[in-house]
């Protein structure tokens, strides 16, 4: 191997569930930032962060939207932490059929957190800016890249999703048909 070790920046939101007060300002700010045009609307249902809240059980967990999943888990864990029982879903970032989180309310399409990437970049993601209780804090840390990430191009990702939806055989046939002169 040649050259030095490769590093990359990991953007991380640190969640302190003990500090969350359940004000949901993070949801408000997130949804405003991601509306098009920016700040044109405000609707927690469109937020890419939701506070899972159960006043009776004293659970306050901000969760950031992760990947879409087609199916819900075939089994779930529950965790007891400091005497309080949390379902696995309480921490799970997935846009999943089991619940109404992280789905665009009009289209039902999944929402995913993008850490508020913008030009020029924000100092901190909007949810962190809106959190006045330090339940959400932002850090960037450098980490060593162990495995070179395989970057899939846009086309490849598109084909993968077509295969996912219609099956490889249909896609192969369609490509063959479309490329026939």
């Amino acid at each position: 191997m040649t050259g030095g070790k490769k590093t990359k920046i990991i953007k991380e939101i640190i969640v302190n569930v003990d500090k969350c007060t359940g004000c949901r300002s993070c949801e408000m700010a997130c949804s405003a930032f991601h509306s098009v045009p920016k700040y044109s609307s405000l609707n927690p249902a469109r937020a890419r962060i939701r506070v899972y809240m159960d006043e009776t059980k004293d659970l306050y967990v901000p969760i950031r939207a992760g990947d879409y999943t087609q199916a819900e888990c075939n089994g779930r864990n529950s965790y007891t932490i400091a005497g309080k029982e949390y379902s696995q879903c309480t921490f799970c970032p997935a846009a999943c059929p089991s619940r109404d989180y992280f789905k665009e309310p009009d289209s039902g399409l999944p929402l995913k957190c993008d850490m508020c990437e913008d030009i020029p970049p924000l100092e901190e993601p909007m949810c962190v800016q809106a959190c006045k209780f330090d339940a959400l804090t932002y850090v960037e840390r450098e980490t060593e890249v162990v495995h070179e990430e395989v970057q899939r191009g846009e086309m490849e990702a598109g084909i993968a999703s077509l295969i996912n939806r219609f099956g490889a055989k249909s896609v192969r046939e369609a490509v063959a048909r479309a490329t026939k002169h």
Binding site: S25, Y39, S40, N43, K132
Partner: peptide, 26 residues
Amino acid sequence: RGTKDINIAHPAELFDISMKMHKRIS
């Protein structure tokens, strides 16, 4: 349970002064 938007007449301006107010209250 509601998932609809509320229309705001001057959304960007309102968001701006609201975030400042948010900080001020805090």
